[in-house]
Design a protein around this nucleic acid. Structure first.
Ligand SMILES: [Mn+2]
Ligand SMILES: [Mn+2]
Ligand SMILES: [Zn+2]
Ligand SMILES: [Zn+2]
Lengths: 145, 145
DNA sequence: AAATTTTTGCAAATGATTTGCATTTGAAGG
DNA sequence: CCTTCAAATGCAAATCATTTGCAAAAATTT
């Protein structure tokens, strides 16, 4: 069901497939433990160390990206294709930024600093429209009492 | 010597001053333990937990930024003013990106996604000019034997 | 279906970060 | 200076995410 091709020499296991599929379904990069728990719920037998081992190898192979979010101390994992995003500070919702504006910027960096550029990651923190309206409602009602 | 004003209610201690000064001197965001060791070397008496406690409070107050670098699992800490940077994958050198190109991009994000934007962080991974030439030297000499 | 290689689960180890608590230090007044 | 009190420190112990060793299970290959 997961349409991601495993690198040469790695076997297809139900645990590995399930992890990849879950990452595909989820826009929000997940904690290792969340992956473990969600798959358990779905009735898939696996262990937390299997989750870690798979994420680690997928990351080394470039299929998965490991990232830390603001004010969090455990890693999140997501498919490498979903790398630039907006994060709502209220509800943790994530919106993928496509048409990444970085490409234009890249040229400039190469020119100015002489770096060979291998990759990048952009995180933008803010409040999503839904939470914005919630917050102003709360503010209004607190004014009224 | 450190020219950073502490937030209201916090006392000036030699440990705190030393940590801030070290962060000021260093372009590269540092591991908590590196801060601890470097200050010990300089003859300053402090403990690792003091380093952590201070970094934590400075981060909550917005003076310090905590970040994880690619392929590292422990946090680095740097002054908040030095937030967007280039990282050399070889030597870990960091080049601060000033004239952050994000501002132009911001408008677009607000318009398209309706987010209120509170902050952002950009990390670019690559190889610096010095390491580029080292790598090609190594390559050439390995070809010659 | 036997042989080979990879993967898994479990329990134990690791290592960064945090915390409790007794003691020291800094700032403010007198 | 001296006193007072909150804030900060050091140390040891605790926490908790992540890693690892090893024997058993599963996937590929013969
Ligand atoms: Mn979680
Ligand atoms: Mn270090
Ligand atoms: Zn939201
Ligand atoms: Zn370099």
């Amino acid at each position: 069901m997961a349409n991601i091709k495993l690198p040469e020499g790695y076997k297809t296991t139900k645990q590995r497939q399930a992890i990849l599929q879950l990452l595909e379904e989820n826009v929000v990069p997940m904690h290792a433990e969340d992956i473990y728990l969600k798959l358990k719920e779905k009735g898939i037998e696996l262990s937390l160390s299997t989750v870690y081992r798979n994420l680690d190898m997928l990351q080394r192979k470039g299929l998965v990206v490991k990232a830390y979010m603001l004010n969090e101390d455990k890693a999140r994992f997501g498919l490498a294709s979903k790398k630039n995003y907006l994060v709502c500070q209220e509800c943790r919702k994530i919106v993928i930024i496509d048409n990444c504006p970085f490409e234009k910027f890249k040229e400039e960096l190469i020119e100015v600093h002489g770096f060979d550029i291998l990759g990048h990651s952009i995180e933008v923190y803010g409040v999503c429209p839904e939470c914005k309206s919630k917050v102003s409602q709360n503010f209004e009602s607190s004014q009224n009492k």
